[in-house]
């Protein structure tokens, strides 16, 4: 196991996740352009940016599903690239945006998929597996739907089932790609509350700046594959930045820790 030379001095807390000058391109188009960021244990970090800014791709790189052309992703002290796939899936769980299956799975089946990296492929479901599934379902408030078909769930319930599946992997880090997409306001709020409440480090790609401001400890703003700003939501999400990155005239109202953004018009 090689420790990266760039690992931080022993005095500081080891970050849960370190992204160091990562580059990724598809068909010679640069999608992720020298992105660096760190995520501290227990934090909820928002990835913001307009459509096509590279949020989803960056999440895929963090998940290890896409291999960066340059740069490194480090999980704790271990480079992601040198980590066995199963080991990676035990430390890092991903909730993708709108996944679908043609199979008629029960909610329980879906959540139990999260146990795959934690048991041998031929082993039967153990009592411990069932316990973890039950606890994950309770945490995401989907336990009353366990024996229902996944296909019959609403959008918000499906998201919660997928998060429960991710939790069943018992990960240190959770990566979520626009989990509030297509949810109504109530479900958006309860889902974000759930994500911040959960006892894991989370990295969440988000569209809604107000949700990000209300629920994320820190945010990073991506524009054309680059990180253009990062830090506390209140210090990052300024009128100037929103205008520059999103092309929107916004009114930003600050009330202590509370941040409210009103969008007025496209610039």
């Amino acid at each position: 196991m090689t420790v990266m030379q760039t690992s931080p001095p022993v005095t500081s807390l080891t970050p849960a996740l370190t992204v160091d000058r990562v580059v990724w391109s598809a068909r010679r188009r640069l999608i992720i352009d020298r992105v660096s960021l760190t995520v501290q244990p227990g934090e909820t970090v928002g990835l913001l940016g307009p459509n096509g800014s590279g949020k989803s791709t960056l999440l895929r790189v963090l998940a290890g599903v896409r291999t960066p052309d340059e740069g490194h992703v480090t999980l704790g002290a271990i480079p992601l690239a040198s980590m066995p796939k199963r080991e990676r899936a035990r430390r890092l769980a991903v909730v993708e945006q709108e996944v679908s299956s043609d199979l008629d799975l029960l909610v329980r089946d879906v959540i139990e998929l999260g146990r795959i990296p934690r048991r041998q492929p031929w082993a039967p479901t153990s009592a411990h597996d069932r316990d973890v599934v039950q606890r994950s379902a309770e945490l995401t408030e989907i336990a009353d739907r366990l024996d229902q078909s996944y296909l019959t769930l609403s959008g918000g319930e499906r998201q919660r089932a997928q998060i429960a599946r991710a939790l069943a992997q018992e990960p240190e880090i959770l990566l979520l790609d626009e989990p509030t997409n297509h949810l109504d306001v109530r479900h958006q709020l309860s889902l974000m509350a759930l994500i911040t409440r959960m006892p894991v480090t989370s990295v969440v790609a988000l569209h809604d700046l107000n949700l990000a401001a209300a629920h994320c400890d820190r945010v990073f703003v991506l524009d054309a594959g680059r990180v253009v700003a990062g830090g506390w939501p209140a210090e990052v999400l300024t009128r100037e930045l929103i205008g520059r990155v999103y092309g929107v005239d916004a009114h930003v109202q600050r009330d202590g820790d509370d941040l409210r953004i009103h969008f007025r018009a496209a610039l």
Partner: peptide, 9 residues
């Protein structure tokens, strides 16, 4: 992709 994130090669 989902299979890959579950640690499957």
């Amino acid at each position: 992709d989902a299979a890959a994130t579950l640690g499957i090669n």
